[in-house]
Amino acid sequence: MPLKPGETKTINFTLHPDDLAIFDKNMNWTVEPGFFEVLVGSSSKDIKLKKRFEVVAVDK
């Protein structure tokens, strides 16, 4: 549902380890520790919100 001009809305979503997985050098899915950013906006040139979080360990 589109927002009207000037209207705001709060959303919530959950990221799971699989959402951050990449292939390692052996072509196995893995999640590497490190910092990630979530960006929200109407385009990559119009970012309205940017939040950073850190993955410190992933249970296997």
Rank of each mutant, 00 (worst) to 15 (best):
K45R: 14
V40A: 15
T14F: 00
V58F: 06
K4L: 14
N28Y: 02
E37P: 00
F53Y: 09
D46R: 11
L15N: 13
G6K: 07
E7K: 07
S44T: 12
T30M: 03
N12L: 08
K50W: 04
F35E: 11
L49N: 13
K50Q: 14
F53A: 08
F13C: 06
P5I: 12
V31W: 00
G6W: 04
V40Q: 05
D24M: 05
L3I: 06
V55D: 04
K60W: 02
K50Y: 01
A57S: 09
H16M: 14
F36D: 01
K45G: 05
D18T: 10
W29D: 09
D59C: 05
K4D: 04
A21E: 08
F36P: 03
D18Y: 05
A21Y: 02
D18W: 04
E54Y: 08
G34D: 03
R52K: 15
K48W: 04
V55M: 04
T30V: 12
V31N: 01
G6C: 10
A21I: 01
A57E: 12
P2D: 12
V31Q: 00
T10K: 11
F35I: 10
A21V: 02
F53L: 14
N28S: 13
F36L: 06
V38Q: 06
A21F: 00
I11N: 05
D19W: 00
T14N: 04
F35G: 02
N28V: 05
V55C: 05
I11V: 11
E54T: 08
V56E: 14
I11M: 14
G34N: 08
I22A: 13
E54I: 05
V55N: 01
K9N: 11
D18R: 09
N26P: 00
S42T: 15
E32G: 02
F36C: 01
M1D: 11
S42A: 15
K25A: 10
H16K: 15
M1R: 12
N26A: 13
N12P: 01
L49D: 10
W29G: 15
L49E: 12
F53N: 11
F53T: 09
V38W: 03
M27R: 14
T10G: 11
K25T: 15
V40K: 04
S43M: 04
F53C: 08
E32I: 07
I22T: 15
K25D: 14
D46H: 10
M1Y: 05
N26V: 02
A21P: 02
I47E: 03
K4R: 12
D46Q: 14
A21S: 15
T8E: 12
E7S: 09
K25L: 09
N26T: 07
E32W: 01
V55E: 01
N12C: 09
D24V: 03
E54A: 15
G6Q: 06
K4S: 09
P17N: 08
S42W: 03
L3T: 04
T10V: 07
E54S: 08
R52I: 10
K51L: 14
N12K: 13
P2A: 11
V40W: 02
D19G: 06
T14Y: 02
K60R: 12
M1P: 00
K50H: 02
V40Y: 02
F13Q: 05
V31S: 07
K45T: 14
L39Y: 01
G41A: 11
A57D: 11
M1C: 08
K51R: 15
L3C: 06
